[in-house]
Computed example of a mutant assay.
Amino acid sequence: MPRMRSAKQQLKRYLQSPQWREHLHDIAAGGATHVGPLFSFLPLDSQTMHRAAVALGLTTARLAEDEPEAARNIIRRFMWHLNEESGNIGWGIPEAFGESLAASPLLAGDFHRVLISYIINLGRDDNYCDNDILRRSCYWAVGRLARARPQLCAAARPWLRKGLDDKDVICRGMAAWALGGLPPDIMDAPALRRLAAAGHDECCELFDGDRIHEKSVSDLARETLAQIAPAGAA
């Protein structure tokens, strides 16, 4: 047990180091033995959570190459944590889900529709995440996958567009950011323009691949709108 605790603490030190990316290869090489500790870091502070999600995604992708069913079981574990019946809140789970699909073409092909389903509100029994704070992470996860594999996220566009009017203001900003990961579409412009003009200065937390930074909801709408230029500038 002390040896396991020591290994866990070493992983945590790696992720909280300024040179954390230099350790990712070794973390992923640990395979299934590192999955549990990485899961335990997901409820921590935002920066550690995102870095743990990256490491868990790469570890899962590495497993998918040699033990695809073991990797699929990790994704199913994400799905269970996001299931209301599990009794879990799921902090950090959408981020790890998105990172895993971004890192693995096999897993992305198998599970991208499931990830997108958490932002699809059909008004009946579905996978829609009705926890406002957790749903922010779901929008981020879809945006992360969209930036890595946009062809798999085309079906998310109408739901991201609908997310620009989400009842949670931060979700609106995250939906705008996620739309920015897809090829520009003039049909997104009207809703983005309304959100950009609304003057929402609430801040969204974003992970740039290394650290957390903040941008306002309306600024994110303006940035995505600018990608549709010249239509967005009209």
Score class of each variant (00 low, 15 high):
residue 1 M to V: 09
residue 7 A to I: 13
residue 7 A to C: 13
residue 8 K to A: 14
residue 9 Q to T: 03
residue 10 Q to W: 09
residue 14 Y to P: 02
residue 15 L to D: 12
residue 15 L to G: 05
residue 16 Q to G: 08
residue 18 P to G: 06
residue 19 Q to D: 14
residue 20 W to Y: 15
residue 20 W to K: 09
residue 26 D to P: 00
residue 27 I to Q: 13
residue 28 A to F: 01
residue 29 A to H: 08
residue 29 A to S: 11
residue 31 G to T: 02
residue 31 G to K: 02
residue 33 T to Q: 12
residue 33 T to I: 04
residue 35 V to R: 08
residue 35 V to N: 06
residue 35 V to H: 04
residue 35 V to W: 09
residue 36 G to Y: 08
residue 38 L to S: 05
residue 38 L to K: 06
residue 42 L to K: 13
residue 42 L to G: 08
residue 42 L to C: 08
residue 46 S to T: 03
residue 46 S to R: 07
residue 46 S to N: 12
residue 47 Q to Y: 04
residue 48 T to N: 12
residue 50 H to R: 13
residue 53 A to M: 11
residue 55 A to R: 06
residue 59 T to H: 02
residue 62 R to D: 14
residue 62 R to Q: 15
residue 65 E to L: 10
residue 65 E to C: 07
residue 66 D to L: 06
residue 67 E to D: 10
residue 68 P to Q: 11
residue 68 P to A: 08
residue 71 A to P: 06
residue 72 R to E: 13
residue 72 R to T: 00
residue 72 R to I: 00
residue 77 R to P: 01
residue 77 R to G: 10
residue 81 H to V: 05
residue 83 N to K: 07
residue 83 N to S: 15
residue 85 E to D: 11
residue 87 G to Y: 03
residue 88 N to Y: 06
residue 92 G to E: 05
residue 94 P to A: 06
residue 95 E to R: 02
residue 95 E to A: 06
residue 98 G to W: 00
residue 100 S to Q: 02
residue 101 L to A: 03
residue 104 S to W: 09
residue 107 L to G: 01
residue 109 G to V: 01
residue 109 G to E: 09
residue 110 D to G: 01
residue 110 D to K: 07
residue 112 H to W: 13
residue 114 V to F: 12
residue 117 S to F: 04
residue 117 S to E: 08
residue 122 L to R: 15
residue 123 G to W: 09
residue 125 D to H: 07
residue 128 Y to N: 07
residue 129 C to Y: 06
residue 130 D to S: 02
residue 130 D to I: 00
residue 132 D to C: 00
residue 134 L to G: 01
residue 135 R to N: 05
residue 137 S to P: 05
residue 137 S to D: 13
residue 137 S to Q: 12
residue 138 C to T: 00
residue 142 V to C: 04
residue 146 A to D: 08
residue 146 A to W: 05
residue 146 A to H: 05
residue 150 P to H: 07
residue 153 C to H: 01
residue 153 C to D: 03
residue 154 A to I: 04
residue 156 A to H: 09
residue 159 W to F: 15
residue 159 W to G: 06
residue 159 W to N: 15
residue 161 R to G: 04
residue 162 K to C: 03
residue 163 G to Q: 04
residue 163 G to W: 10
residue 166 D to H: 07
residue 168 D to K: 05
residue 173 G to R: 14
residue 175 A to S: 15
residue 175 A to V: 10
residue 175 A to M: 11
residue 175 A to N: 15
residue 177 W to C: 02
residue 177 W to N: 11
residue 178 A to E: 05
residue 180 G to R: 04
residue 184 P to G: 12
residue 184 P to T: 04
residue 185 D to G: 08
residue 186 I to A: 11
residue 186 I to W: 01
residue 188 D to Q: 01
residue 190 P to V: 04
residue 195 L to E: 15
residue 195 L to H: 13
residue 197 A to L: 12
residue 197 A to E: 15
residue 201 D to K: 10
residue 204 C to T: 10
residue 205 E to K: 03
residue 205 E to A: 09
residue 207 F to N: 02
residue 210 D to Q: 05
residue 210 D to K: 03
residue 211 R to L: 00
residue 212 I to R: 02
residue 214 E to K: 07
residue 217 V to G: 09
residue 218 S to D: 14
residue 221 A to T: 11
residue 222 R to Q: 12
residue 222 R to Y: 08
residue 223 E to N: 02
residue 224 T to M: 08
residue 225 L to R: 11
residue 228 I to M: 10
residue 230 P to D: 12
residue 233 A to S: 09
